Each structure stands twice: as C-alpha cells, then as structure tokens.
Amino acid sequence: METDWRRLLERDDIDVIDICTPGDTHAEIALAALEAGKHVLCEKPLANSVEEAEAMAAASEAARARGVRSMVGFTYRRVPAVAYARQLVAEGRIGRVLHVRGAYLQDWLTDPEAPLTWRLQKERAGSGALGDIGAHIVDLAQHVTGEALTGVSALTETFVRERPVSDPSLLGTSGISGTAASNGSTMRGPVTVDDAAVFVSRLSGGALATFEATRFATGRKNAIRLEINGTRGSLAFDFEDMNVLHVFDNEVPSRDAGFTRVLVTEADHPWVAAWWPPGHVLGYEHGFTHQAVDFLTAVAAGADPRPSFTDGLQVQRILSAVETSAEREGSWTPIDGARTTSPVLS
C-alpha cells in the first residue's frame, strides 16, 4: 500500500486526490496536487488559516483554467432535506429571511478522560469545535439562504484543558509537552483548541443569525440543526431526524396553521436516481456518496463542482473572524471581503 502521498502525484493512473488528512497538511497536498494536474476534493475546513486558504483558492482558479477541478467537502449540502430547504427559500416560499439559527451539537468529548488527539491540537487542526463542526453550520446557513455572513460577535471555551495522552508522538511537537498524572501512570497534554463556540451574526440581506458548535452537548450525537424564519414562513431541520424537513406556511389560516412534517424520501430530490426505495431512511454515509457522485460527474463533464475552494475560503474567513472576536471578548468583527448584498442562488 502506498504511504507517501507524493508518490500518488507521479502516477498516471490516478486522476483524483481526496484530501482527508489533518488540517495542517491540506494546503501542502492540495497545492502540489493541483500543480500536478490532479482533480482535488478536500475535506473541510479548507485550511488551518486564511492565508493557506487564499493560496489554495488562487491555485484552484489557476488549475481551473487548465481544466483541473477542485471542491471542498461540505457534505451536508447533499442531504435531500437541505436541498429541499434551499429550493423553498429560492422560490420565495418563506419570504424575506429574518432569522437563522444554526447549531451542531455532539458529546464525544464530555468524558474528561477521553484521550488527546490531533483534533485537540491547534497546530494540527487549526481550531476545535469551531472548524470541525461549526464550519458545517456556517456553510449550510449561507447555502440554504443564499446570503453571506457579514460580521460576528463570538465567545469560545475550552472546558477540559488537559487530557490523557495515549499516543506519545503527540507530545514534544510544536511546543506540546506532557505532564505526569498524580499516580505517575499517565501522561497528560494540553488541549489547545476550543471545545465550544457560540456567536451571533448578520446576513447580507439583513437577517440576524445565531450559531452554536460544541462537542460537549451531553446526549447529542450528531445534532445539526438549522431553523430559518421568514416573512411568509419557516423551515426547521435536525440531522438526527435527517429525512424530515418541517415547513411552516404563515399564509395558512390560523385555525389550520402548524409545521408540516415533510418526509423527503418521497420527494423528487436531486439524488433520487441513486436512492433507496421509497420509505427507506437516508443513512449518514449517503451524503458522502452524493458528494463523490457530484464531484466526479462535474469532472467528467468539465464543469465546476460546488462548493468551490473559493467557497471554502469564504467560510475560513468567517472562522478566523470568530476566533478574533472571541479573543476580544466578543467584540463585533466584520468578515473580510464579505458581500453587502445577497448573492444569487445557484
């Protein structure tokens, strides 16, 4: 089995590079792969810094001129309920967007004895819950509404600041050092990223937005929640009930009003051709399958897949603004290069 990614770039029988490594290697691999003429699918967040993401976006544009395609892996765009929500917003079914609420809740770090991993080290992961899962809800909010975040006010917190080290290679690198536990049997290393991030924002169309990303929501396994309130109605989605979109029509007479539970497995969603039979549930892995289908189909057709590296760069700027705001105790921080008007849904 090939263990050096550089060797893959030398092989004529490999056309696509899928980057699913820790964030500190995304830029190096993507830049080299694009230069070698390989199509690139890169996991989110695109990079560990805005500067890296800018370099990757510029390289992707240069490669695009040579017919080389690239995409960032915001997988949850491929959930049929999310695609349906985006369609309803684009059709004006909920009117002008007033509020957006996004949350991504997990609990896999609530145990203080859970071991230190690369995801808990800033030099490897870039950030914690913010980049790992917060990037998803930022992308979903913008993707579904067709609007961009223009600024943020944020707070972050690290609840467990040291964890057991099961892999000694994590110690002694980039300033990371370990300390012995009281019984002398276990080494512990510092957690250098956020465990949770909360922030408020404003969208380019004037809507107010709130976001929460945490890996300390006890009992929540993969709760990605998105609610959008508009002048004509509302939409609500929860990934833990991923085949359903709740739709409220504000123009229905009050005696008949209420959220309608729409089962999207019965709908003519974008990926129905590769779907389970009607009535079967969507599995978590389907989003990755749909992502691969969309990416490879675009490559074969010579089309531009979405989300692009430029989309990934825009999310990276938001993550950076959240960190800057949190460092300043929540001061309002504009997004660099943010649009001031709503983009066209595409």
Rank of each mutant, 00 (worst) to 15 (best):
D13Y: 05
V152N: 05
A135T: 08
A65C: 02
V193L: 09
L46T: 12
G337R: 12
S49N: 10
E162Q: 11
I228K: 04
T117R: 13
I17C: 04
T210D: 08
V72R: 07
G128W: 15
R202Y: 03
R119K: 07
Q87E: 14
V344M: 14
L130A: 07
V262D: 04
R93P: 01
D111P: 04
E251C: 02
F211H: 10
F309R: 00
C42W: 05
S331V: 14
V272W: 00
A141L: 02
E43H: 00
W5F: 08
A47E: 02
A55G: 14
L263Q: 08
D107T: 10
I335M: 14
D18T: 03
K38S: 08
R119T: 03
P277A: 12
A85Y: 09
A207G: 15
G37L: 09
E43A: 10
R86Y: 14
P253S: 03
L149C: 09
T297K: 11
S254E: 10
S177E: 14
I137D: 13
I94A: 02
W332R: 14
T214N: 01
A196H: 10
L171H: 08
H269S: 01
M56H: 10
V344E: 13
H99C: 06
D24P: 00
E329I: 00
R66H: 12
E162R: 14
H290D: 11
G131H: 07
P277D: 11
S174Y: 13
T25I: 02
E52H: 15
A292H: 02
S70Y: 10
E2G: 04
A63F: 04
D167P: 01
F288D: 11
A125G: 01
R101S: 07
G102N: 02
L245K: 05
Q314Y: 06
H39N: 03
E51I: 06
R261H: 15
D241E: 09
G128S: 03
A36M: 09
L313G: 07
T265H: 13
A303I: 04
D12E: 11
E51F: 09
D238L: 07
Q142M: 13
R96D: 14
A125E: 07
G128M: 10
M242C: 05
R232I: 09
A303R: 13
R77S: 02
L120H: 15
V262W: 02
A257C: 06
V247M: 01
E43F: 00
S346A: 11
A103G: 06
R188S: 06
T110G: 04
Q291E: 06
T25Q: 13
G302E: 10
G184N: 03
V244P: 02
Y84E: 08
L34N: 11
E227V: 07
A63K: 04
N243P: 05
T117Q: 12
A217N: 10
T25Y: 12
E157H: 06
R306A: 15
V152A: 11
